[in-house]
Amino acid sequence: MSEHDITLKVNGRTYRGKASARMTLVDFLRDELRLTGTHTGCEHGVCGACSIIFEGQAIRSCLMFAVQADGASITTVEGLAEPGTLSVLQDCFWETHALQCGFCTPGMLIASQTLLDKNRLPTDEEIREAISGNLCRCTGYKQIVDAVKLAAQRLSGLNAPVKSDG
């Protein structure tokens, strides 16, 4: 299996590594870079647990080969806030208990953050649309929708955060 040198910018930091041609991007992030916050749930592009922000878009990192991402700029859950702090969105997930087991959570955060980056005051329907490609078995989605709504309000200055870093 041929090995390829690749260079990625992940969470603002440049990484260089070797990937075999068939290695998926999620395996590269998890196994080579040890960024294990991104999870694998189905590895066939349905569940969304492996969602990352790739050049500004939420994508499924199980559906892309690592070599295809050479030169790209990526954000994973580890990069949503400064180390040791939580972003407004993460804090709102905590406030509404928008998670239980935490396994789909990184993907949900990625999907929601991408929505908020484009749409500062989304409707419930727009939030549901944005997270509809991410499956959660614990929450029934209700508290996730509540969290994104709360984050949108806070980011728009309508409702100041209670705690910025928990």
């Binding site: 294990t36 916050g37 999870h39 580890e78 939580l86 997930f93 905590w94 208990h97 998670l99 959570t105």
Partner: peptide, 21 residues
């Protein structure tokens, strides 16, 4: 009350079995 365990998952620092190497 905010659940204690939520924070590590939100930070992406939960340790699931797949993460153990």
């Amino acid at each position: 009350r905010r659940p204690k365990e939520d924070r590590r998952f939100l930070a992406g620092s939960g340790v699931f079995v797949a993460d153990i190497a």
